[in-house]
Computed example of a mutant assay.
Amino acid sequence: MARRSFLQWPVLRQFRSGDVLGRGPAVTSPHTRALEPRTATADRVVQSICPYCAVGCGQKVYVSGEKVVQIEGDADSPISRGRLCPKGSASEQLVNAPGRQYQVRYRPPHGTQWQSLDRDTAIDMIADRFLETRRRTWQDTDESGSPLRRTWGVASLGGATLDNEENYLIKKLFTAAGAVQIENQARI
Rank of each mutant, 00 (worst) to 15 (best):
residue 23 R to N: 04
residue 100 R to H: 10
residue 140 D to E: 09
residue 105 R to M: 14
residue 24 G to Q: 01
residue 27 V to E: 02
residue 86 P to K: 03
residue 23 R to Y: 02
residue 28 T to M: 08
residue 78 P to L: 03
residue 107 R to W: 12
residue 51 P to F: 10
residue 155 A to Q: 12
residue 164 N to M: 04
residue 43 D to W: 11
residue 184 N to D: 07
residue 76 D to S: 14
residue 10 P to Q: 09
residue 131 L to E: 13
residue 158 G to F: 00
residue 35 L to V: 06
residue 118 D to P: 06
residue 37 P to H: 01
residue 51 P to D: 07
residue 114 W to N: 01
residue 126 I to D: 07
residue 130 F to K: 15
residue 67 K to L: 15
residue 81 R to S: 09
residue 44 R to N: 06
residue 32 T to E: 15
residue 57 C to E: 05
residue 36 E to I: 15
residue 32 T to M: 13
residue 7 L to E: 00
residue 44 R to S: 04
residue 144 S to M: 10
residue 180 V to L: 04
residue 114 W to M: 04
residue 92 E to R: 11
residue 181 Q to L: 11
residue 180 V to C: 03
residue 69 V to W: 08
residue 24 G to P: 06
residue 69 V to Q: 04
residue 147 P to Q: 06
residue 35 L to P: 07
residue 141 T to P: 02
residue 69 V to A: 13
residue 27 V to Y: 00
residue 20 V to M: 05
residue 181 Q to K: 15
residue 26 A to P: 00
residue 122 A to E: 11
residue 154 V to K: 04
residue 37 P to T: 11
residue 25 P to K: 13
residue 142 D to R: 11
residue 102 Y to S: 12
residue 18 G to V: 02
residue 146 S to C: 12
residue 136 R to Y: 02
residue 144 S to N: 09
residue 126 I to E: 03
residue 181 Q to P: 02
residue 118 D to C: 05
residue 113 Q to S: 08
residue 61 V to T: 04
residue 42 A to F: 03
residue 56 G to E: 05
residue 143 E to Y: 09
residue 133 T to E: 01
residue 155 A to W: 01
residue 79 I to D: 07
residue 68 V to Y: 14
residue 44 R to F: 05
residue 112 T to H: 07
residue 164 N to A: 11
residue 85 C to H: 06
residue 5 S to Y: 02
residue 84 L to E: 07
residue 163 D to N: 14
residue 27 V to K: 02
residue 25 P to I: 12
residue 26 A to G: 03
residue 112 T to D: 14
residue 176 A to W: 05
residue 136 R to N: 14
residue 167 N to P: 02
residue 138 W to K: 11
residue 142 D to W: 07
residue 171 K to A: 07
residue 44 R to C: 05
residue 133 T to S: 10
residue 12 L to G: 00
residue 111 G to W: 09
residue 149 R to S: 09
residue 103 Q to D: 10
residue 188 I to W: 00
residue 139 Q to A: 04
residue 51 P to Y: 11
residue 119 R to G: 08
residue 95 V to P: 12
residue 23 R to G: 06
residue 172 K to C: 01
residue 182 I to C: 08
residue 152 W to R: 03
residue 70 Q to V: 10
residue 27 V to W: 00
residue 19 D to Q: 00
residue 107 R to P: 03
residue 160 A to R: 07
residue 182 I to D: 02
residue 129 R to V: 00
residue 147 P to V: 01
residue 132 E to A: 10
residue 39 T to M: 08
residue 81 R to L: 15
residue 73 G to M: 12
residue 80 S to D: 14
residue 124 D to I: 13
residue 32 T to I: 12
residue 98 P to F: 09
residue 18 G to F: 03
residue 152 W to D: 00
residue 168 Y to G: 07
residue 17 S to Q: 09
residue 121 T to A: 13
residue 65 G to I: 08
residue 113 Q to L: 02
residue 122 A to Q: 01
residue 93 Q to K: 15
residue 86 P to Y: 02
residue 50 C to K: 14
residue 98 P to I: 06
residue 53 C to D: 15
residue 50 C to Q: 03
residue 32 T to F: 14
residue 184 N to S: 03
residue 36 E to Q: 15
residue 25 P to G: 13
residue 8 Q to A: 01
residue 106 Y to L: 08
residue 146 S to G: 10
residue 81 R to F: 14
residue 45 V to T: 11
residue 166 E to L: 12
residue 30 P to A: 05
residue 88 G to T: 01
residue 137 T to W: 00
residue 45 V to A: 04
residue 48 S to A: 15
